[in-house]
């Protein structure tokens, strides 16, 4: 066996001791890496990992934030959700409709716009990126949308429709259960050129211009071929980031709905799973039940993430 220490045989059997020694050696070799990660990981552990772990068992308890310790109830929260809570069942439907419309659509739109903007010159790139990202920065803009979809004739949408003679009386956009979900989806799409879009813009900008020159030499004929053969393979990881952000925003959106159509919305028309969790968490203070709702949502998001990373992964190869 030549040099057994430096080149350990991966397939061959090693004793536990050898494995441990090898691990320790690799840890020692990488101590600069650990040191560089330390500041971030320390904060991340304190303010994300520990709170997440602490919150995991809450879904199995009956917890009103006043009685300590919370009462252990096992899986009964989950039984109640699926068997006795008709609003929850309705919220699953709303969330799915919502996620299907806003998720893939705004992912595709983000990519398309990021690509088209990339075809512009330097100044226009900044201007257009700003225009499409601006809604994500205007946190107080729901008031404007309330103005647009206001239920009286002073509302922008109503007055426009009435002036054009399409309708004769004002439509109750925000309280009529037939329109609520559509209105919320429109506004959600409007704010959805967010983190994913900006990351895609960065992805496009991170591609080495030399690759395009080489591509032109090797016979790439138009923008489309350039996109398929050079750009997309080069920005795979950014696409995955955008996908994760899209899943999160599509599944957990409740702020738009709560600000726009109020809480609870008429007939629970815009009542997503997240809204349901808000209801039980911060209105009824049944934290255990609310945590169980969040847990179900997390499992759904995890599944969606696995699915998408498999699809994207296959495409990238």
């Amino acid at each position: 066996m030549p040099q057994p220490e430096k080149q350990p045989d991966q397939t061959g059997r090693k004793t536990k001791k050898e494995q441990r020694q090898q691990l320790l050696r690799r840890i020692r070799q990488n101590r600069e890496a650990y040191l560089m990660m330390l500041p971030f990981m320390l904060l991340f552990t304190l303010f994300t990992v520990i709170p997440v772990i602490m919150s995991l068992p809450v879904g199995l308890t009956d917890f009103d934030m006043a009685t300590f310790p919370p009462k252990w109830v096992g899986l009964s929260n989950f039984y109640n959700l699926f068997l006795n809570d008709s609003v929850f069942i309705k919220s699953i439907r709303v969330t799915l409709i919502f996620a299907v419309f806003t998720g893939p659509l705004s992912y595709f739109l983000s990519f398309l716009l990021a690509w088209l903007i990339n075809e512009m010159n330097r100044t226009l790139k900044v201007i257009f990126t700003l225009i499409f990202y601006a809604p994500s920065m205007a946190s107080g803009v729901y008031a404007v949308w309330q103005l647009i979809f206001s239920g009286d004739s002073y509302g922008i949408a109503n007055s426009a429709l009435m002036n054009l003679g399409i309708t004769t009386s004002a439509i109750q956009w925000l309280t009529d259960s037939r329109y609520i979900l559509a209105v919320v989806i429109i506004v959600q799409l409007w704010v959805s050129m967010g983190a994913g879009f900006l990351a895609m813009r960065a992805g496009f900008q991170n591609i080495d211009p030399a690759l395009y020159e080489a591509g032109a030499v090797e016979g790439i004929k138009n923008r489309w071929q350039e996109l398929i053969y050079i750009t997309i393979p080069g920005m795979g990881p950014s696409l995955m980031f955008a996908a994760v952000m899209q899943i999160v925003s599509a599944f957990t959106a409740d702020i738009v709905a709560r600000n726009l159509v109020g809480f609870p919305s008429t007939d629970y028309a815009a009542h997503t799973i997240m809204t349901h969790a808000y209801d039980y968490g911060w209105v009824r203070f049944e934290m255990g039940y609310a945590s169980a709702i969040c847990m179900i949502l997390f499992i759904a998001m995890y599944a969606a993430n696995k699915l998408i990373s498999r699809v994207l992964g296959k495409y990238m190869e």
Partner: peptide, 26 residues
């Protein structure tokens, strides 16, 4: 480095995880 894969997985899980009690725990 040893632990790389686990930390990467934890980061993605942390992004997806969303709980109304997390602020309480923080």
């Amino acid at each position: 480095f040893p632990g790389n894969k686990i930390i990467n997985a934890i980061i993605v899980l942390a992004l997806l995880y969303n709980s109304n009690v997390i602020y309480l725990m923080q």
